[in-house]
């Protein structure tokens, strides 16, 4: 399966986008949204792209539209939110690749360097450190992956 990249965007921003869209009745013109939020257009596009990859929003024409899963996520408690997002993250090719990668490692752990090298191998056009940071950030939020800086260990959550 071809591995596709994801933008380096924090989960909190994605959740903020969903809240803002809900306030706007579930649909808004992307340009107008950037202006209303005083957000740099390119930065907002990155957040929207990340939310779209997770199937939380859709982008018909120049608009961004909240999807039923996005609406569900903003209405549930934090642990349900994390669990729903985990399902979406696991389904993405980048994360499923690294789940399989870690399962092949001793103790299901790899060093930062090993992950960065693998990221560079499968996504040659992307910045491998940025890929690593996204794996750690989304992985931690959804409790799919962990990273211990002291031990330099990127690992698969015990429940996986």
């Amino acid at each position: 399966m071809e591995v596709t990249p994801v933008p380096e965007v924090g989960m909190t921003r994605i959740l903020g986008l969903l809240e803002v869209l809900d306030d706007h009745g579930g649909r808004e013109d992307i340009y107008r949204l950037a202006r209303d939020l005083s957000y740099e257009f390119g930065d907002l596009l990155g957040v929207i792209k990340a939310a779209e990859i997770l199937r939380l929003v859709d982008t018909p024409g120049g608009d961004v539209v909240l999807q039923p899963l996005g609406k569900q996520i903003i209405e549930c408690d934090v642990n349900t939110k994390k669990s729903l997002l985990k399902k979406q993250v696991k389904a993405h090719s980048l994360f499923s690749h690294f789940i399989a990668f870690l399962k092949q490692q001793p103790d299901r752990k790899a060093s930062r360097e090993e992950v960065v090298v693998e990221a560079g191998r499968i996504l040659a056009q992307e910045k491998p450190l940025s890929v690593f940071r996204t794996l750690v950030n989304w992985g931690r939020y959804t409790e799919l992956f962990g990273y211990n800086r002291d031990d330099d260990a990127f690992y698969l959550d015990s429940e996986e």
């Binding site: 994390k82 962990g146 990273y147």
Partner: peptide, 18 residues
């Protein structure tokens, strides 16, 4: 606060929101 998974992270590894 939704920080499960971040227990062993250091502040420099976190976004402002976290």
């Amino acid at each position: 606060v939704g920080l499960d998974g971040y227990e062993e992270a250091y502040p420099r590894e976190l976004s402002g929101g976290m």
